[in-house]
Each structure stands twice: as structure tokens, then as C-alpha cells.
């Protein structure tokens, strides 16, 4: 059985499976893409962002410190 046939039988044959896999795939791609770009951004800007220097200024244990995102 060729790859395309396997693909068809697994994902496309039943519409419920097809739609579900499209939605799940979009969700997974969205998260993966965000994580990937963030990794690239963080490694490119290593040491420049607030989260890289924040530990210098947090006083005490800082466990109840709320991490604020940008404005």
C-alpha cells in the first residue's frame, strides 16, 4: 500500500477524522511555529531582553512576583 493510499485511508476517508485532523494540525502548527520563532528571537537577542536581566533586579525570593509582559 503506497503512502498516499495510507494517508487517504487514515485521514481523508471519514470526514470526521479529516476535519478533526485539520483542526488539530492547525492548532499544533500554531503552537510549534510560535515556539520556534520565539526560540529564534530569544537566541538572536540573547542578553538584551528584560527576562535576561530581570534576575539582577528582583529583590528577595520573588516567588509571588508577578511576571509582567510588555506594555
Amino acid at each position: 500500500m503506497s503512502l498516499s493510499t495510507t494517508f487517504y485511508n487514515t485521514f481523508v476517508k471519514r470526514n470526521s477524522v479529516y476535519v478533526t485532523s485539520i483542526f488539530a494540525g492547525a492548532f499544533a502548527f500554531g503552537i510549534g511555529f510560535d515556539v520556534g520563532v520565539s526560540k529564534l528571537w530569544d537566541s538572536w537577542n540573547r542578553g538584551k531582553q528584560w527576562k535576561d536581566i530581570r534576575h539582577n533586579y528582583v529583590q528577595g525570593a520573588g516567588e509571588d512576583e508577578v511576571v509582567h509582559k510588555g506594555p
Binding site: 528584560w50 533586579y57 529583590q59
Partner: peptide
């Protein structure tokens, strides 16, 4: 003041 939080200073500062 709140704009500085998370950019250059901690909330406490």
C-alpha cells in the same frame, strides 16, 4: 509608570 514594568524595572521598583 506601569509601562516601565517588565521593560526596564520590576513592579516593586
Amino acid at each position: 509608570w506601569r509601562n516601565l514594568v517588565g521593560v526596564s524595572h520590576t513592579a516593586d521598583e
